[in-house]
C-alpha cells in the first residue's frame, strides 16, 4: 500500500542568463493506492501527473509532504534499504523503445535484474533462465522467439510487453504505468491493458495508471479510483465509473467530453463540450481552471476553491459551482 500526503514538488529555476521562474509541478497531492488496487491520474500533458509517478518510483525527489510505502517513509531509511523498497515499485514508461537498451538483446536485458535477484535468493543460473522464460510467457510473448532479439526487431506492442516482463523480474508490488499505451497502435492497446488488468487480478500487483485516456484508465481500474489533475492539483476524485458518469468539475467534464464518440454505436452525452483555444499555463486566477471554464464566475477568479466532498461515495472536488453533467457518450442499440 502506498499513501501519499500533501506531496509538493517544485522544479528549481534554471540558472544562466535567461532566468526562469521555479515551476511548481505538484501542489499538495494526496491519495492512497491500496494493495492490488488501481488509481488513475488523468490530465493533459504538463499537468504534473508524470512527476507523481516518478516520485513514487524514486526517480525524482520531493520538497514536502510524505510518501509512505506500507507505512514507512523511505526518506528516513538508509539508501540501501530505500533502494530495496523502491525496487518493488516499477515504472512502465511511455516509450517502450526508449525504455529498452538498443544495443542489448532481450535476453541480456532480462538477465541483468535476474542476476541480482538470483544472488539475493541464492538461486542458480538455470533458475534465472527459466524465470526469464516465465516472465516473457506471462506477458504473452514466445520466449524462444523473443529472447535473442534486439528491441528494434520487435513491434511497439511487443516492446511494451518486454518492458513489463522486465519489471516483473523483481516481483513488484506496484506498477506505475505512465502513458504506457499511448505510443502503441490502438489495435494493440487493449492487449496491453488487459495484461495489466490480469497482473492486478491474478498476481495482486497494484497499478498507478497515469494517462490522458480516460477509457484506458477505466479498463484497468473500473473498481479503482480516478484523480483528475489540473496544473498540479487534484481537482476531482472518485470511484472510476461514478466519476465518469457524473463528473462535477468542469475540467473533468472537458476531459471526458474529449473521449472520441463512436458515432453509430454511441450517442454523444447531452452536456458534452470541448474548449477549442490554447491557453497560458498560469493566468493568476484563484481557481486555475477559471480562464478555460465556460461556467466560471467572478468568485472563481478571486476565491480559491477548496476540496470538498460531493455526495457520500468518497467523491471529492475543488469547484465553487459543482454540477453533475452527462458528458460521456452513451451506447446505442444497434441491430445489425
Amino acid at each position: 500500500m502506498i499513501e501519499v500526503k500533501h506531496l509538493v514538488k517544485t522544479y528549481p529555476a534554471r540558472g544562466g542568463i535567461l532566468k526562469q521562474k521555479p515551476v511548481q509541478a505538484v501542489k499538495g497531492v494526496s491519495f492512497v493506492l491500496p494493495d492490488a488496487g488501481a488509481v488513475a491520474f488523468i490530465g493533459e500533458s504538463g499537468c504534473g501527473k508524470t512527476t507523481i509517478g516518478r516520485i513514487l518510483t524514486g526517480l525524482e525527489s520531493y520538497d514536502s509532504g510524505e510518501v509512505l510505502y506500507d507505512g514507512v517513509n523511505l526518506t528516513r531509511l538508509p539508501s540501501a534499504e530505500r533502494r530495496e523498497k523502491l525496487r518493488k515499485v516499477q515504472l512502465i514508461q511511455q516509450d517502450p523503445y526508449a525504455a529498452l537498451n538498443p544495443s542489448r538483446t532481450i535476453a541480456k536485458t532480462l538477465m541483468a535484474p535476474l542476476a541480482l535477484e538470483a544472488k539475493r535468493q541464492q538461486k542458480s543460473k538455470a533458475w534465472m533462465a527459466s524465470r526469464a522464460r516465465e516472465v516473457l510467457a506471462l506477458v504473452g510473448l514466445n520466449p524462444e522467439v523473443v529472447l535473442p532479439k534486439y528491441p528494434h526487431m520487435l513491434s511497439g506492442g511487443q516492446r511494451q510487453r518486454v518492458v513489463i516482463a522486465r519489471a516483473l523480474t523483481v516481483e513488484p508490488d506496484v506498477l506505475v504505468a505512465d502513458e504506457a499505451v499511448s505510443m502503441i497502435d490502438v489495435s494493440l492497446r487493449l492487449g496491453i491493458l488487459s495484461l495489466l488488468l490480469e497482473l492486478r487480478n491474478k498476481h495482486g500487483i497494484a497499478i498507478l495508471f497515469i494517462t490522458h485516456d480516460v477509457a484506458a484508465a477505466r479498463y484497468v481500474g473500473q473498481d479503482g479510483r480516478v484523480c483528475v489533475i489540473y496544473q498540479g492539483e487534484v481537482v476531482e476524485e472518485g470511484v472510476t465509473d461514478d466519476l465518469i458518469q457524473s463528473p462535477v468539475h468542469p475540467y473533468s467534464q472537458a476531459l471526458l467530453s474529449a473521449v472520441p464518440v463512436l458515432r453509430g454505436l454511441e450517442a454523444p452525452g447531452p452536456d458534452r463540450y470541448i474548449p477549442l483555444g490554447e491557453f497560458q499555463q498560469d493566468e493568476g486566477t484563484a481557481c486555475r481552471f477559471a480562464p478555460r471554464c465556460r461556467y466560471a464566475e467572478e468568485r472563481c477568479r478571486t476565491e480559491k476553491p477548496r476540496t470538498v466532498p460531493y455526495g457520500n461515495g468518497g467523491h471529492r472536488h475543488r469547484c465553487h459551482f459543482p454540477v453533475a453533467r452527462r458528458v460521456v457518450a452513451e451506447p446505442l442499440e444497434v441491430n445489425s
Binding site: D185, S187, G191, V328
Partner: peptide
C-alpha cells in the same frame, strides 16, 4: 470488426472489448 472491438469504451460493458489477436 477486430479493430472496433479492440477500442476500450468509456461506457457500457467492459467485457465486450476484445484485444485484436496477432501482430501487425
Amino acid at each position: 470488426k477486430g479493430l472496433i472491438d479492440a477500442i476500450p469504451r468509456i461506457t457500457g460493458d467492459l467485457a465486450e472489448a476484445k484485444p485484436l489477436a496477432g501482430s501487425p
